[in-house]
Design a protein around this nucleic acid. Sequence first.
DNA 1: CTGAAAGCGCTTACAG
DNA 2: CTGAAAGCGCTTACAG
Lengths: 330, 330
Amino acid sequence: MSLGSIAEDLGLSKATVSWVLSGQGDSRRISPATQKKVRDYVREHNYQPNMLARSLSLGVTKTVGLLISSLADPFYSSIAKSVVEEAEKYGYTVMISSSESDHDREAALVDSLNRRRVDGFIVTPTEGAAWLDEYVAGGGNLILVDRPVPGSSIPYVGVDNEQSSYRLVSHLIGKGCRKIAIFTTAHNLVNMQARHEGYLRALKDAGIEPDEKLIRNVASAADQQMIETELSALLADVPDLDGIFFTTHVLVVPTYVYFSKVDKMDEGGNRWACIHSLPEFEILLPRMSIAQMNIARVGASAMDMLVAQIEQGIAPKESKYIIECEMKLR
Amino acid sequence: MSLGSIAEDLGLSKATVSWVLSGQGDSRRISPATQKKVRDYVREHNYQPNMLARSLSLGVTKTVGLLISSLADPFYSSIAKSVVEEAEKYGYTVMISSSESDHDREAALVDSLNRRRVDGFIVTPTEGAAWLDEYVAGGGNLILVDRPVPGSSIPYVGVDNEQSSYRLVSHLIGKGCRKIAIFTTAHNLVNMQARHEGYLRALKDAGIEPDEKLIRNVASAADQQMIETELSALLADVPDLDGIFFTTHVLVVPTYVYFSKVDKMDEGGNRWACIHSLPEFEILLPRMSIAQMNIARVGASAMDMLVAQIEQGIAPKESKYIIECEMKLR
DNA sequence: CTGAAAGCGCTTACAG
DNA sequence: CTGAAAGCGCTTACAG
């Protein structure tokens, strides 16, 4: 079924049907009777207009591409969820795809989405992807999420990594902790750097000398063996360790398991603090302090900014939009 | 940039350019020189053909809609991941959306995808969604995943729920367990029913009388309080409990926490068995037996079936395609 | 070996 | 109050 066939069945022109359906019936002064006829027909036959034709004609698809690093990772799929929800409010459809941290894949996905003429992109960048600056230079609409691209001025939405870390570590200090380890992974990522800086600033403000022995980095958060080795070295080097700041939630459960094993767990994680969390933490570690990222707001804000850019050509004044973490200090 | 502008720049007709780009240059006997000219131009200018126009003309979008129940749930997003990967092999793009278990939302998403003229759907159905049978009756291409719709003959891909449960429970029995509880949630879902049946069959084959006191169902897997109440009743009613079969991985961590608290944990989950698992189980419960769902194969098979249906009009002979779980009996 | 033309299903300036 | 016509960017039967 098409506009044409409807027009034919109803003895009208395609134009008339189109005006009615696009809500311009009144302003075009089409008779109420005709309008009703069209609307009834459409409802009865459950006509679904062909958006391909519509978009081709309009030059706009009301579609945005979302590129995340990983689909199976709840962190990214939660971002996707919030982006989709916000997009709906504006009548946009989101085409979700994941690069799985593969550059070639990412490039192919971008091309594919461009061929489908998306109106813009939201991207959690895979290291310094080259196409980003090019795309923006070519007039493309693009918002970065989670990670900024250092040195680029592409609009970006993220969380206050440095400040949240500062507050968590300060909170531990307030509890009397003096030998607080920082346990981190992927240490060279820009977000991890910011968290490390927050840790150092909190120590400094409390007049505590940073200690190299308390700084622990593992290459992979998935390698339990490697984590246990690192932790056992930590316990050996710092027998009077009295707190841990985790730069990411993924390191917590492995540490929990090891500390339980060697009988070093404190009461419910009372002297632990962590950026972000998982549902099970409330059960396993009810006393751990947490800076909970507001993923929903991050995604929604990114979408807001993108729509503003697409529809009003507004590049945000501030190219960085930082959303505060929700602090659960306990 | 468009076919037209390329043709103009090159002094050719749109037709010639189109033939070359669609790989029919040789069969149309277009001179190698002309073909090279076109290809060089396209490469140099990074021309991305407008798929909207192409699809409109061809009547086919090479696009499928994926409807999952929840985007933030790793189980469903893993299905999405595998569907996307398989789709790529066929040159299809997947439009992912999630109903968040909301019927109205689902209906709206289906309409939206239909307006974008997807060639077919893969769906993890939200209870008995009414549009499914209608859509198929109207000639639509549709594959169900994870859950069948009882009483319908729509093609479906899932796992061997009954058989896996049977094998897990039999394994516990083989270890000497006689008082094995089944701990379940959403008990009326068709998949949960199948798992319950597997449990009963294993008992029966071993000559063990089923005991109502061992059958435990909670309304919500997210409610720790409710779970602990149920478990404490279980321990009170069956003091000589010697095994647990979990119909789903989501109940395991809450149980772990409670059993640790009341000091009832056995060695690494040696007398526990569970359908599906999470990465942390290898750490928390290294001795628990697991029937691991092969989500990647489920997603890939669904996509295979859908493509066969779209491109060859083949409805699979068997409307149910069951993928075996990988058994980790230990 | 290549091109002119019709068609896919919409939208919208133009005309009456 | 309504319609005829051009255009969006492709594909492909038809023609030469």
